[in-house]
Simulated scan of single mutants.
Amino acid sequence: MAMADYWLLEKQLVHKLFKVLVPRFQNSELSYTKIYKAPREYPGIYYRRSVLELRGNPYPSLITDQNQNRNQLHNILLDEARKEFQKIKLEEMSAKITAEEKEKSS
């Protein structure tokens, strides 16, 4: 408690730390924080900055879940177009290889 009192400048946050946050993560088996590198400002002096995020915070996460975006219509259509393009390219390559093999054998 003395360490929290030393590090936290706003003394009302010491109460919040032990009454709200500690019980929230008491039985957690995962880490209770995530740390991200913050983008640097351009132009400007380069300082290393990071953001510490608590798991289970009520605000949206800094990094969005990309798995949810896979099911959107435009991503499905782009995936199918990519598959079709790759199929056509592979067919062209196989036709080219078979034509080269026929030229070598004759």
Rank of each mutant, 00 (worst) to 15 (best):
residue 1 M to A: 07
residue 2 A to W: 07
residue 3 M to T: 09
residue 4 A to P: 00
residue 6 Y to I: 14
residue 8 L to E: 02
residue 9 L to N: 10
residue 9 L to T: 11
residue 10 E to V: 09
residue 12 Q to P: 01
residue 14 V to A: 03
residue 14 V to Y: 02
residue 14 V to F: 06
residue 14 V to E: 02
residue 15 H to S: 10
residue 15 H to P: 00
residue 15 H to Y: 09
residue 15 H to G: 06
residue 16 K to N: 06
residue 17 L to Y: 14
residue 17 L to H: 08
residue 18 F to K: 07
residue 19 K to T: 11
residue 19 K to I: 02
residue 20 V to D: 14
residue 21 L to G: 00
residue 22 V to Y: 05
residue 22 V to F: 08
residue 23 P to E: 02
residue 23 P to H: 04
residue 23 P to I: 01
residue 23 P to Q: 03
residue 26 Q to L: 09
residue 26 Q to D: 06
residue 27 N to C: 05
residue 27 N to T: 02
residue 28 S to Q: 12
residue 28 S to D: 03
residue 28 S to K: 05
residue 29 E to C: 01
residue 30 L to G: 05
residue 30 L to M: 12
residue 33 T to L: 13
residue 33 T to F: 07
residue 34 K to A: 00
residue 34 K to N: 15
residue 34 K to S: 12
residue 36 Y to V: 00
residue 38 A to D: 14
residue 39 P to R: 09
residue 41 E to K: 12
residue 42 Y to R: 08
residue 43 P to M: 05
residue 44 G to E: 07
residue 49 R to I: 01
residue 50 S to K: 05
residue 50 S to M: 08
residue 51 V to E: 10
residue 52 L to S: 01
residue 53 E to R: 09
residue 53 E to T: 10
residue 53 E to G: 05
residue 53 E to M: 09
residue 54 L to G: 02
residue 55 R to T: 15
residue 57 N to I: 00
residue 57 N to R: 03
residue 57 N to A: 14
residue 58 P to C: 02
residue 59 Y to A: 04
residue 59 Y to V: 00
residue 60 P to H: 01
residue 62 L to T: 07
residue 62 L to H: 08
residue 63 I to T: 09
residue 64 T to A: 07
residue 65 D to K: 13
residue 67 N to F: 11
residue 68 Q to R: 08
residue 69 N to W: 07
residue 70 R to V: 03
residue 73 L to V: 04
residue 74 H to W: 06
residue 74 H to M: 05
residue 76 I to K: 15
residue 77 L to W: 11
residue 79 D to E: 12
residue 82 R to A: 07
residue 84 E to G: 11
residue 86 Q to A: 10
residue 87 K to A: 14
residue 89 K to V: 13
residue 90 L to S: 10
residue 90 L to T: 04
residue 90 L to D: 15
residue 93 M to P: 00
residue 93 M to I: 13
residue 94 S to Q: 15
residue 95 A to E: 06
residue 96 K to C: 04
residue 97 I to G: 02
residue 97 I to Q: 12
residue 99 A to M: 08
residue 100 E to P: 00
residue 100 E to R: 06
residue 101 E to T: 09
residue 101 E to L: 15
residue 102 K to M: 09
residue 102 K to E: 11
residue 102 K to A: 13
residue 102 K to R: 13
residue 104 K to G: 00
residue 105 S to T: 03
residue 105 S to L: 13
